[in-house]
């Protein structure tokens, strides 16, 4: 269903489907949320980046479709986009990485040691870094943060969501920790 909503927003849905979707959106609370989420994103885009050209164009496009229930024409979709779609296509990979690290019970030491071997001497470079967040965010929290973040993340680096080694291990109660 969600994919239909987004297809509709992309203007990829047939017109007969559109009206049935709209009816369903009206009747279903979940879908309403979904719908408003999409528009919230659109709104925040318009607000936050009105100075840049792209945002202006998006705003113009939105302004010419006041209800937004009318799907956009497919012409506008030709710039369908890289960043977040890549995120979608790679998300599972990210998940793999994340899961991998959380189940590597004994690896924190390995990791740290290797890290040290790879790196030059330590430096008290930036004061902000010198206090390491020790009791700070409870492990489970960081994992949740990483996962919540991941859906916005567009780069291959997002397999890096995985990497929160220590907390992951702790939060899932690995036998080694």
């Amino acid at each position: 269903m969600k994919s239909k909503i987004s297809a509709m927003m992309d203007g990829e849905l047939k017109s007969e489907d559109v009206s049935s979707i709209i009816t369903q959106i009206k009747e279903t609370g979940d879908l309403k949320n979904e719908w408003s989420t999409y528009h919230l994103i659109g709104d925040s885009l318009r607000r936050s980046s009105s100075s840049i050209d792209i945002a202006r164009r998006v705003s113009t496009a939105l302004a010419t479709e006041p209800t937004l229930l009318a799907p956009r024409t497919t012409k506008q979709n030709k710039f369908k986009v890289f960043a977040l779609s890549v995120a979608a296509s790679l998300a599972a990979v990210a998940m793999v990485g994340w899961m991998g690290l959380q189940s590597m019970g004994h690896s924190p030491e390995n990791f740290t040691n290797n890290k040290i071997a790879l790196q030059p001497e330590p430096s008290p470079a930036i004061p902000a870094s010198s206090s390491i967040a020790d009791p700070a965010p409870a492990p489970a929290q960081i994992n949740d943060y990483l996962l919540a973040h991941r859906q916005f993340s567009a780069t291959p680096a997002m397999y890096g969501v995985a990497p929160y080694l220590r907390t992951s291990v702790e939060s899932r109660g690995s036998p080694d920790r």
Partner: peptide, 8 residues
């Protein structure tokens, strides 16, 4: 998909 579509 919604995001890219909006992001233009």
């Amino acid at each position: 998909k919604s995001f890219p579509a909006i992001l233009s």
